[in-house]
Design a protein around this nucleic acid. Structure first.
Length: 234
DNA sequence: CCTGATACGAAAAGTCATGC
DNA sequence: GCATGACTTTTCGTATCAGG
């Protein structure tokens, strides 16, 4: 996925109000950015970090600038726009770059499924294959040389695990796909120390047959691409 | 009948106010 | 003192509806 036009850099003052962040441009101007990531963003929003933002031409937006990347003071690159994770996997699937998910002729997005009125991120179909339901999660929390998910207690994430597991018992294929959008993360683990219930459900879902896939990415202000498989730690 | 515009629901989680 | 819930903003996909 390419960022066109190019992203602009600025220095982070602070993130506040869940959706907003104030930054200072190199010209000294203060801007308010929209922040699509509603997560805790631990380690991804330290005041003084360099943030890279895009500008939308949608006239209805109150805040046309969107926070896309953080360049931390440890020189790590992080994509904080979690909406990108879905797009990145979608692109990778169309280009057949995820071998575990190859061989499907049809890729649908945001299909309703399950019993809790949820929508699955991606649904893969082919005439000779069983349906494959995929939930995409972006991993941006780095602690002690390991990437963790989730970065905060997430009831919704737990719901997604239950529903994926349900798909497996319905005879479908179900995949939890971790898109690692942090240049410093080389392995991923469920965050038992953050959401122990989630970690339990994770193990249970995995035992029940929900597949876990984990891919890293290359990140720079020009764009992001899912590139290589990463190991998952139990 | 099809296309484009518009409306709407769902999603995200921290903060603050309210109620017990 | 703790739990609950409204509120915050934007996006995306789907559904609906109008118009050509």
């Amino acid at each position: 996925m390419d960022y066109t036009p190019r992203l602009q850099p600025a220095r982070l003052i602070k993130r506040y109000k869940r959706f907003l962040a104030d930054v200072v441009t190199p010209e000294g101007e203060t801007l308010t950015l929209h922040c699509a990531n509603t997560g805790a963003m631990t380690g991804c929003a330290t005041p003084g970090d360099t943030v890279w933002y895009s500008t939308s031409d949608n006239p209805k937006r109150k805040y046309p600038h969107s926070w896309e990347l953080t360049e931390t003071q440890q020189n790590h690159w992080i994509c904080v726009n979690t909406l990108r994770a879905n797009t990145l996997l979608y692109e990778a699937l169309l280009e057949n770059r995820v071998e575990e998910l190859s061989g499907y002729s049809d890729v649908k997005t945001e299909v309703r499924y399950g019993t809790e009125n949820s929508r699955v991120d991606l649904l893969l179909q082919a005439p000779d294959k069983i349906d494959c339901y995929i939930e995409v999660k972006s991993v941006t929390l780095l602690q002690h040389e390991c990437g963790y998910f989730p970065d905060a207690v997430t009831l919704r994430g737990q719901k997604h695990l239950r529903e994926l597991q349900q798909m497996v018992s319905n005879g479908k294929r179900a995949v939890l796909f971790f898109a690692v959008l942090h240049s410093g993360i080389q392995q991923v683990s469920p965050a038992r120390h953050i959401d122990s219930r989630y970690a339990e459900l994770f193990t249970e879902a995995q035992r029940a047959g929900v597949e876990i896939l984990c891919y890293g990415s290359t990140l720079c202000p020009d764009g992001i691409t899912l590139t290589h498989k990463l190991p998952l730690l139990g």
